[in-house]
């Protein structure tokens, strides 16, 4: 590991994120695919231990981006997804 990388890790600051969870890996992949097509920023990460969900992957994005794209994302009741604020 380079010194720069080490320095970057030491200075890491925790941030508030929106975490979208899924019941299946396929649903997570479908979300990633949809976001890529629509240019919605965010990415799939391993599900933090503090959140319980079916799938080990979740979609992470910044709260302001979530607010902007909430309608297109179609999360929440009946969608098979759950939305959390999570500091990480």
């Amino acid at each position: 590991m380079t010194e720069n990388k080490r320095d970057h890790i030491r200075k890491r600051i925790k941030k508030d994120y929106i975490i979208i969870t899924f019941k299946t890996t396929t649903a997570a992949m479908a979300m990633e695919n949809r976001c890529l097509k629509k240019g919605i920023p965010g990415r799939l990460i391993p599900l933090p231990g503090g959140i319980a969900a079916g799938c080990g992957l979740c979609f992470r994005m910044l709260p302001e981006e979530y607010a902007k794209w909430e309608k297109e994302l179609g999360c929440g009741e009946g969608s098979g997804t759950e939305v959390y604020h999570y500091v990480m």
Partner: peptide
């Protein structure tokens, strides 16, 4: 139990 969501 094995998950019952398709396709998994």
């Amino acid at each position: 139990a094995h998950p019952d969501q398709m396709p998994e």
